[in-house]
Design a protein around this nucleic acid. Structure first.
Lengths: 169, 169
DNA sequence: AGCATGTGTTTTATGAGTAAAAGATATTTC
DNA sequence: GAAATATCTTTTACTCATAAAACACATGCT
């Protein structure tokens, strides 16, 4: 069983400051490091199509909600700022992957939807992307993946809940 | 047991594309989301001291390796670009937290170390930071944290190993 | 000795993201 | 009906990170 980078870091701390409780690093440090590596590694299929991950997320959001969405709604759904969404939408529209439709009653709002081309690209790319990600996780073992997914789910619920109470600190 | 955001997204996909295998999302999607939330939430003690997380990492790296390091070495150790390290070192030096020493023989290289002030700041801040992170994880349960740390360690070993073979794709 | 090579650091140019302000228009209130 | 208010989108200004070029110098080879 090889040692990962974070374990090495924790061992270093133990030698220099033996009384330090480094336990949180085992979870948070590894989590951040895994995320960084995955984000760098896991988007290869997307990049081949000239899409960034946030752009892909917008296409996916439109596909899975299966209805028109406003820019503001997309911003909330993808946890991005309005400005970032504006830029991505412009880019996606220029590529012909999404289309705008003005609202009938409220001229401030526009509704976005996938074009046929956009849907075709996504439906082709998504299984490929998921397959690639599955390959990255291969070697963990199905049982381990399930446990990991479960634990992360609990943690995520915890963190989402705690977001509200973070305004205090 | 509440449902997390990723579970909701997976359910949406299941309704629109029932044959899609969304299993990787359960791990990778949650992992990325947790990391994003943690990075936003977990650095509060640092920010109070006017330090960014990457700056804090540099101080920590110097402290735990317990010897002088070159900028290049720090860049590799903290997974940052050389340019980013240059800027952070300048900032930390101006604040008097680190000191430069030119190499005796090779005038290209400089050696960096913590000043007394830098070490004092870190030794005060690190336990506080770890305590804060521990509080964030509280509610998961010790057993769950250990399992999570173990699974993430395995995944990390896997991903680190796979980094070399990523040049192929 | 002198020149090429390699290594380590810093600067420059560029791109991406965000917060805050601006712009546009509907809705509410008086 | 007019003015204030609210909401949604887009633009602007700024920060931060990176990649690539530029720079500085030691080392190795001839």
């Amino acid at each position: 069983m090889a040692e990962d980078i974070v374990a090495g870091v924790m061992r270093q701390w133990q030698q220099v400051l033996p009384e330090l409780d480094t336990a949180p690093m085992a979870v948070i440090g590894r989590l951040n490091r895994c995320s960084a590596l995955l984000q760098q590694a896991a988007d290869a299929p997307l990049r081949r199509e000239g899409l960034t991950r946030p752009e892909f997320d917008i296409l996916g959001t439109l596909r899975r909600t299966d209805r028109e969405l406003t820019p503001g709604r997309i911003a909330r759904e993808t946890f991005a700022s309005g400005a970032a969404v504006t830029k991505r939408l412009r880019q996606l529209e220029q590529r012909g992957l999404i289309a705008r439709r003005p609202d009938d009653r409220d001229r401030r709002v526009t509704h976005l939807s996938l074009t046929d081309e956009g849907r075709e690209l996504l439906d082709r790319l998504l299984p490929e992307q998921l397959g690639y990600e599955a390959a990255l996780l291969d070697g963990l073992g199905t049982r381990n993946q399930e446990r990991l997914a479960g634990s992360l789910g609990e943690l995520l619920v915890l963190l989402e809940g705690r977001l509200g109470s973070l305004l205090d600190s």
